[in-house]
Amino acid sequence: MQYRRALDSGACYFFTLTLENRNKEYLTQNIDSLRSAYSKVIKRYPVKTIAIVIMPDHLHALWQLPVNDRDYALRWRLIKSYFSRSLPIDEFRSTSRIAKSERGIWQRRYWEHKIRDDNDLQNHINYIHYNPVKHKYVTRAVDWRYSSFHKYVNSGALAVDWGIDAVNISIDAE
């Protein structure tokens, strides 16, 4: 059976994109290049970024697509491509990747999940913001620099100490 992606125009999606080599920290070490690639693509193909976290070896994002637009795959392909091109070629590349003129930075596939309802949305926002704590990079979500958590705090939607008592938050996303 072949996997079929959800492709609904104007829908809200949760994504996980991962580096090919999970031992590399390309994303946080090259955060300016990633931000540049992201901004360049989102400017040309707008989406609303509801929440995002950049980890050293993967990222999670929640996007609301525009009405009559379902092409998140194009956006992610371009973001991955622009980011990869900004880095020197020093990674292992398989014969297959070389033949296809691909870099070996990203895993070819990524995870997407269509958000079902407000509860599902909130669970995924929580998951994104708690991810640096889950992976033990920090003990408090506020201490991770590469997260939309700070925008939520600045807007008053979350408290600075959110997530310290993980028992009281839902982090049941994928």
Rank of each mutant, 00 (worst) to 15 (best):
Q2H: 15
R4Y: 14
R4L: 15
R4D: 04
R5Q: 12
R5K: 15
A6M: 13
F14W: 12
T16M: 10
N21W: 05
R22M: 05
N23T: 01
N23G: 10
Q29H: 08
I31D: 02
I31T: 06
D32S: 09
R35M: 02
A37E: 00
A37K: 00
Y38A: 09
K40C: 11
K43A: 12
R44F: 04
P46K: 00
P46N: 01
P46F: 01
V47L: 04
I50P: 03
I50D: 05
I50L: 14
A51Q: 00
A51P: 00
A51R: 00
A51G: 01
V53K: 09
L59D: 01
L59E: 06
W63N: 04
W63E: 03
D69H: 06
R70P: 06
A73S: 13
R75L: 06
R77D: 05
K80V: 02
K80A: 03
S84I: 09
S84Q: 09
S84V: 10
I89N: 14
D90F: 02
S94E: 06
R97H: 08
E102L: 15
I105P: 08
W106K: 05
Q107M: 08
R108P: 00
R108C: 02
R109M: 09
Y110E: 01
I115R: 11
I115A: 06
D117H: 10
Q122W: 14
N123L: 11
I125M: 13
I125N: 10
Y130I: 12
H135Y: 09
Y137V: 08
V142Y: 11
V142G: 01
S147N: 05
F149E: 04
F149V: 04
K151N: 15
V160L: 14
I164H: 08
I164E: 15
A166F: 14
A166I: 12
V167M: 15
I169V: 14
I171F: 04
